[in-house]
Amino acid sequence: MIRFENIGLRYGIGPEVLRDISFELAPGSFHFLVGPSGAGKSSLLSLMYLAQRPTRGLITMFDRDVATVPRRELPGLRRRIGVVFQDYRLLDHLTALENVALPLRVAGAKPEQIRDHVAELLSWVGLSEHLDARPETLSGGQKQRVAIARAVIGQPSLLLADEPTGNLDADLGMRLMYLFEELNKIGTTVVIATHNDSLVARLNHPIMRLEDGELLVRPARKAAAL
């Protein structure tokens, strides 16, 4: 699914924020990405959702060397990736329903197919009363749920989430984690960057720990016990 080999990333002429990152995520795996603030979690995720290119190293996604994928084929790869951004990145002039529908819309889905599907998902995340609400009228938690719904609406092969439960109460946070696990069970590869230690402890998945730009991968507890 994803393979990083000796990846390095620096911004401009600054120091490397990621150094010699190498790992492989199998299809259908579920990983937490943890580490202190500034360790490079968001940078690592941005490489995974193809927002930037590494300074060095080789990234293989969906069995394609990303560096050699023609530009016209990159949108197709990105549509296989769902992203929950830390700052939500909702479009303020669109309603909650329109924001969630964006991935389907840019992929050319028909409007009648979009509405029912999107409304159902928003209902599932508890926003059925806010389909036509603009982001500016929603609370932080509601915006986060819209962002999560937008990330999963296209049934991506890879789901990347940057602090997806940061503004949610514990119950709703767990409920959404169960949604991610359900998606994982049907084959979606999931990577969740989080500071929420209790969440990590509660769900038994492998952990990728990033510190000072370097990565350590620790298997799940049960797997480790085996």
């Binding site: 949108p75 549509r79 479009l91 964006l102 840019v106 992929a107």
Partner: peptide, 16 residues
Amino acid sequence: REAIEVLHLIGARDSY
């Protein structure tokens, strides 16, 4: 720029 980046990252083609 922000809206365009979001569209870009969710798989919108340049032509879109």
